[in-house]
Design a protein around this nucleic acid. Structure first.
Lengths: 211, 211
DNA sequence: TTAAAGTTGTGAAATATTTCACAACTTTAA
DNA sequence: TTAAAGTTGTGAAATATTTCACAACTTTAA
């Protein structure tokens, strides 16, 4: 990766990486920045600028080679690196994520599920190994799990995060509507708050309402 | 709302709004920008700047009155406005969202669920009324539904969005890993892509890896 | 009553990100 | 072979966002 890649660029490049995968399946071998932009709702300028943070992309003048570009991005961003992941909290949302194929299709192997309710652990039908929540630190350490999803209720989120941190987790996707505070700030946290998304949409809608 | 509120400010203010609700429950009546910042991991500067886009907030010099500020934000952003919502796609993720209490607790009433599989509609146990997918436009129109969650498989996302648009939906939270293109660009779309979140985390982790 | 400490609100400066413009190159088609 | 059309890559300009600095005010404590 050339110099510092801005966060928004990284996010867009991941979208492009996934699009390139679809294009490969469709049998499309070459594509221009304009076409990528039209598909993803991004300006072509932005896309070319994003690529300029990568070491190498296409040949100036001719369009991008789909599979070459995808390989290049995957390599530079280490997106294609296999990593182990776990789910903490096996309610409806947690089990939905546990069973979501897209993770394994993209190199993320879910190797553990955790819940504080032993009953859930014993009755849930899945191929993923399940453990009680207090074992989080040990399992993370032993299994070398790098990524975690937090899908526990709001009041358990902070404790769960601390247990994940104690095991040496490297990145967390937090679905609980609570901001997590960890002393080790090298642990990356990405927050997904569905209700907040509704509120933001609602506020924007409100702007266009007369009264 | 004073002048144009930047998107990041709006997002932070929604977080603050929700925090203020928690503080009310805890019986905390006053709070400073520094304290809000510490709780949410935002700088105090940012918070005060965000508030400057609102018409009125606190008295310069004294801390913010928690319930006054919450009321003010709710009023200006119309966050407290009740809106009807629906879920399109009743797989694991869709049903998880259908049963998520946090929506009703925040003024969003889920009044309809849709799926293309009639079998699911007939067997799913819920208080929410369920309909086959082709009825989306009619129901949206008749029930005056403003917000929607798309939780269908990737290949059905575009069609689902078009049906929602045909019914006059105003905002969509899209959980499918596909970019939706609508001709009516007054319809707001917020994309949540869990796999992309993993990829971004993975790329950041990769930056800190030696080899 | 008064000084010290703490706080808000907001222009201005600093920084980050997006958009523009165009040279250098490739492809296409006559 | 050659001109026209299309494309990338990237500095520079424009725009957006964050951070700073500080006046004006409030609270606290002696």
């Amino acid at each position: 990766m050339n110099r510092e890649m801005p966060k928004p660029s990284l996010s867009r490049i991941c979208m492009i990486y996934n699009l390139l995968g679809e294009l490969e399946n469709e049998g499309i071998t070459h594509i221009s920045s304009t076409e990528i932009g039209a598909r993803l709702g991004i300006s072509a300028h932005s896309i070319r600028k994003d690529f300029s943070f990568l070491a190498e992309t296409g040949n100036a003048g001719s369009r991008y080679d789909v599979s070459k570009l995808r390989t290049q991005i995957g390599h530079e961003l280490k997106i294609n690196r296999k990593r182990k992941a776990c789910i903490a909290g096996l309610g409806r949302l947690g089990t939905a994520i546990l069973n979501y194929d897209m993770f394994s299709h993209n190199g993320y192997e879910i190797t553990a599920g955790f819940d504080s309710n032993i009953n859930i652990i014993e009755t849930l039908k899945t191929n993923v190994k399940l453990y009680p929540a207090y074992q989080i630190p040990d399992i993370i350490k032993n299994e070398q799990i790098e990524l975690a999803v937090i899908a526990v209720p709001a009041d358990a989120a902070q404790l769960t995060a601390e247990r994940l941190a104690a095991g040496g987790i490297k990145g967390i996707v937090n679905f609980s509507p609570v901001v997590i505070n960890l002393t080790d700030d090298s642990i990356l946290i990405s927050n997904i708050d569905v209700v907040k998304e509704f509120q933001v949409l609602s506020a924007f809608i409100g702007l266009n309402e007369i009264e």
